[in-house]
Write a protein that binds this DNA or RNA. Sequence first.
DNA 1: TTGTACGCGTTATCAA
DNA 2: TTGATAACGCGTACAA
Lengths: 362, 362
Amino acid sequence: MSITMQDIAQKAGVSRSAVSFVLNNKPISSQITEETREKILKAANELNYRPNNIALSLKIKKTKTIGVVFASALGAGTFMNEIIDGINTGIHQHGYNLFLCISDNDWRKEARHVRMLREKRVDGMIVFFVSCQKEEKANHDHLLEVKKDGIPLVFIDKYLPDTDIDYVITDDFGGAYEAVTHLIKLGHRKIAHITAPIDCTSVSNRLEGYKKALIDAGLEVKEKYIRPVDYYKKDNNWKYDGYQITKDFLKMGEDRPTAIFTVNDGIAIDSFRVIKESGLSVPEDIALVGFGNSIESALVEVPITVVDQPKSEMGDKAVEVILRKIELSEPTKTEQITIRPKLIIRQSCGASKMMTTAGAIS
Amino acid sequence: MSITMQDIAQKAGVSRSAVSFVLNNKPISSQITEETREKILKAANELNYRPNNIALSLKIKKTKTIGVVFASALGAGTFMNEIIDGINTGIHQHGYNLFLCISDNDWRKEARHVRMLREKRVDGMIVFFVSCQKEEKANHDHLLEVKKDGIPLVFIDKYLPDTDIDYVITDDFGGAYEAVTHLIKLGHRKIAHITAPIDCTSVSNRLEGYKKALIDAGLEVKEKYIRPVDYYKKDNNWKYDGYQITKDFLKMGEDRPTAIFTVNDGIAIDSFRVIKESGLSVPEDIALVGFGNSIESALVEVPITVVDQPKSEMGDKAVEVILRKIELSEPTKTEQITIRPKLIIRQSCGASKMMTTAGAIS
DNA sequence: TTGTACGCGTTATCAA
DNA sequence: TTGATAACGCGTACAA
């Protein structure tokens, strides 16, 4: 069915070697008549020939393909898109292509995908892995196998502690620290934090940043102001429920927080709705800061101040790292990159319209 | 570097054939001692073995991979995500995987991607192609080559007229017709349409639906109410500018339209902003209906009534079609599927809170 | 220029 | 159970 060099050779009435030489512009092909060369090119063209990359890959043991695994395609607005966009740009410039897998927040599916990518002999993998699914903690053996296999692996946005696997993440600690410090500077003293009930580095680092900012400002860290959301099921997908916690905060009377810093934008938007429904207003009664900078966060009635996760930069960097590993193929040292996020000040905390920026560090 | 069956055979002290039989659960392997079988399995496990799918593909001439090409990763909110999500679900259930390419609205890049996918010997391709980029009309030869090659090809969301290539699209005509009819029923007579300056089926079908709805209601189709947007450059990407056209409409005095139907949500949001800035209000002064149902459309201050493109259904269907083509491998008849969209009534046209729905047709 | 041969890792067939 | 051998399509090296 599919056209081979043999077919071209036949049609052009030359040898298969000649075809190979010409098609690959080998130095030897300079000793081939211009006439023969054109005959070959013409035949290839007429036959709609495309080299068989599978055969090539088998031979050279390289696929020029990067496997990318994401926990969710629709999780947080365009989170995946922006990262993919970053990955994509870099990847193609270097002649690599992208194998995409979505694990739907199911670590078993993730494991299947990761093993499949190994079988497909991708040259490297960029993984946004599943931390846990409701109750059950995720298993990560399949990721360690990749490492053991010697296939370049880079985590994105979160990492596995206690391993020396490369990663590119947002400075969650620093971002949270800056967000909370911003609130403190605006005069807030009762600052709550809504966190997520999962055990992953990004979530816990944000929590730590929140605590440290309070401590550095001489404020007390109060457990009653730190609450994890619950899950609820929507469209057959587990989502976070920011409503209940916010309601709880509103019922605290005297102790009611004057500001809430949430672990992500989705929850901040939930909070906004609850606050509004209760007759209070943002930012006058309660200030709000989210984390992520999803498109939604900017479109809410009162645009929400957020820590901007540098999504496409993470994608860019992840590509840089993985290509370095692939091309050097030497046992290089671990690269663990943290990108400093910007705080985007909008209207949900009543601050002036200035913007705090910070460059990237690594 | 990579472990082969040979390595396993060696380690287990058996023949390579035995390994192959056991690993593939061949009937012949029933004649193999339970002991040998376990030795083999154990060795495979200890060596962290994964079959080489490249070698397999070369032999069986199947990659179990579908190539997916998108014009843009960030074009319209989560448009791509939702389609990919649909594609992804179906694909994995059937043991297929997904090779993703983004052409950044550049048809030359698209051509490179499509040819690359042919070289990678994907079993089929789902393509959201580039219609044109500013001034220049896109070339589609690379898509015809795929067809000529006999590789199953399905277009998504728009198609190439004058070809018999399969596609799965939204009923753009019907959706537009319903949207405009809705406006007419609400009493509007001066209904404008903002279209796009590109020559592609989805855009022109929406325009035709708009016209037909007017005609069927006995209203006149006026050219002054039909205007294409201009492009502008943002983040190195061409975007549509809905602002200027809307401003022009507002300046029409007596003839000012009382309703605007836009070819997509992004433009509807632009229009909303212009209307609001001019001191007028939606829907009291001007009603608005968009097309797409991007997340943004629901989050605007006045949530926008939109035609809901059935994105994940399009993905689903595209997979169904392509798998049918792949597995049958017989020259089956062309499948061109049109999915009827729903009109989602929100607050931008002042209609009551009911929802018009319609099932899918094909 | 050509023809021949090898190797990449697998499946598959056949004879031992 | 085991070898041995062919085939998949290509790159490459070598002898003619």
